[in-house]
């Protein structure tokens, strides 16, 4: 599969945007500048960037508690995201949702989700709506290795398969469900094996290779658009940070983390683009500077935005 220069730059830009966004959040959390808690996507950027590069604006996604990357990759507005995470009234959800509940239905983002495995049935329902109306759209369900053990996920896989719905299940296998390694939580090593039980393709890709993710999801999306039903794509990756910021990570060795940091998807993609002459060093620097500026604007917007008024508590419980 040939990937256009434009697509490569788009995917790289997305990964870098996620990286910088999450790095800033890490800093802000440590400085107690944001309320609540955050689950960072650092190290996993290639999955969201590669998967969403295979989608159109009108396609749906359901995301997870570690959702910032998916939202950014699907086109989420950094200002509105940052303001939401700061708990400001100008945020995506007017400060009602926070990190784990950002959504933008106009961009097809049916929400990050605080419940592990919560998104599967919802993505399946979006797929059902697409099929019902005969639309040329797909629904992508991002879910982790932990979520793959939830009944909701298994029910969603089964229903999507039984009804041949246009759903792509993108598994982000980062090796741990909070502190529990997959070796203790399942008898198999490859979550893609589970696809066989639902008679759907189960593909394994290097989740730190954005082009590999893009190619696999593109194939799965094409299959879904043709009415041939769902697929499961397992992206092997790793989270650099703990489950949440503040997690002491006593359950894994530093060497393991270091090994994965060496597999950083971002310099890997940058090098590929430089080698192939897609971008020069100078152009790469300019791209970084542009995103850094964009991010700074988002931070300023969030910092300067007002907090919600207590009376806002009562808004939007019902339509």
């Amino acid at each position: 599969m040939t990937i256009s220069k434009k697509k490569m730059i788009e995917m790289y830009t997305t990964m870098y945007r996620i990286r910088q966004f999450e790095s800033k959040l890490q800093e802000f959390f440590a400085a107690s500048k944001i309320p609540g808690f955050v689950h960072l996507y650092l190290g996993e950027e290639a999955v969201a960037a590669g998967a969403c590069a295979a989608l159109n604006k009108e396609d749906y996604i359901t995301s997870t508690h570690r959702g910032h990357g998916h939202l950014i990759a699907k086109g989420g507005d950094l200002k509105l995201m940052m303001a939401e995470i700061f708990g400001k009234s100008t945020g995506y959800c007017k400060g009602k949702g926070g990190s784990m509940h950002i959504a933008d239905v106009d961009l097809g983002i049916l929400g990050a989700n605080g419940i592990v495995g919560g998104g599967g049935p919802i993505a399946t329902g979006a797929g059902m709506a697409i099929q019902y109306r005969g639309e040329d759209r797909v629904a992508v369900c991002f879910f982790g290795d932990g979520a793959s053990n939830q009944g909701t996920t298994q029910e969603a896989l089964n229903l999507a398969s039984a009804w041949e719905l246009p759903v792509v299940f993108v598994n982000e296998n980062n090796g741990y469900g909070i502190s529990c390694p997959i070796s203790k939580s399942m008898a198999i090593t490859d979550i893609a094996d589970r696809a066989a039980g639902y008679d759907m393709p189960g593909v394994i890709v290097d989740g730190n290779d954005v082009t590999a993710v893009y190619e696999a999801i593109t194939a799965a999306v094409a299959r879904a658009r043709k009415g041939e039903g769902p697929s499961l794509v397992e992206c092997k990756t790793y989270r650099w940070r703990g489950h949440f910021e503040g997690d002491a990570c006593t359950y894994r060795e530093k060497d393991e983390v270091d090994e994965w940091i060496k597999k950083d998807p971002i310099p890997r993609c940058a090098q590929k683009m430089l080698d192939e002459g897609i971008l020069t060093e100078k152009e790469l620097d300019a791209l970084h500077a542009k995103i850094d500026t964009e991010l700074q604007e988002a931070i300023t917007f969030a910092e300067e935005s007002p907090l919600p008024e207590p009376a806002d508590l009562f808004e939007d419980v019902y339509a």
Partner: peptide, 25 residues
């Protein structure tokens, strides 16, 4: 198409209705 039998899968029934509703049905 409009009166659809599901498997015995209550989470997926309620969740699919939720997702389809979010998508406009």
């Amino acid at each position: 198409k409009r009166v659809r039998d599901t498997p015995i899968t209550e989470s997926a029934i309620v969740g699919a209705a939720t997702g389809a509703a979010a998508a406009g049905l």
